[in-house]
Amino acid sequence: MKVSLFVTCLVDMFQANVGKDMVEVLERFGCELTFPQGQVCCGQPAYNSGYVEESKAAMKNMIQTFEEAEYVVTPSGSCATMFKEYPRIFKGDSEWEPRAEKLAGKTYEFTEFLVEVLQVEATGAKLEGKATYHPSCHMTRLLGVKDAPMKLLNEVEGLELITLPNAHNCCGFGGTFSVKMGPISEQMVDEKVASAELTGADYLIGADCGCLMNIKGRMERKGKPVRVMHIAEVLNSR
């Protein structure tokens, strides 16, 4: 199966290991991978801040970059959601709307792709310890991917999953919200950190790099012992 990787700007620049783990997992299940070099950012930071026109150039770049792809797979629920939003954003644009539709139709979040397309739940991963999972908002509510990560995590040997209290509450990232509304974001992420600690988990796992960067950054600042991991890292643990 031919898969084009959309790794997101965060992974490309700051969390390359997440991308590498995703590559190794997908290759293990027989995917033939490409990385279209034209990719930059999905446009979400500007779009969500209200700069819709400014963000369209970034979106068009992505549409062009992935035009030839058979499947587009990304390790971020939120960025996948953004691709799925493109047709709505370009609605009525006779050139770009159909192209956006095509991209949206072939885009998958990483865990969704594993479970729904590759029909894989047992990845053969092994990780000893207790873990709790933070279901990120866009992935759960807008993309509708809820069960796939749990199915995959349940199969990880040695991993004990503990439910995160108030898991449905946002971690306080929200893109530019995290800096624009710092005092509110701080309260939200602190509650998320406290909830994770309450579970006694060794690992807090998620599937969105933005949210994880927020939670991890706060944990590090506060010197918390919980290790924050992207689900690709977990699934590639041996």
Partner: peptide, 26 residues
């Protein structure tokens, strides 16, 4: 732009080798 972020949290250092460069080698 990083100031407001780092008032509350650590920010990861940019990768020495970006994912795209690693992938090319890979």
């Amino acid at each position: 732009p990083l100031k407001a972020w780092t008032e509350l949290r650590e920010f990861p250092a940019p990768e020495k080798e970006r994912f795209r460069d690693w992938f090319t080698h890979h």
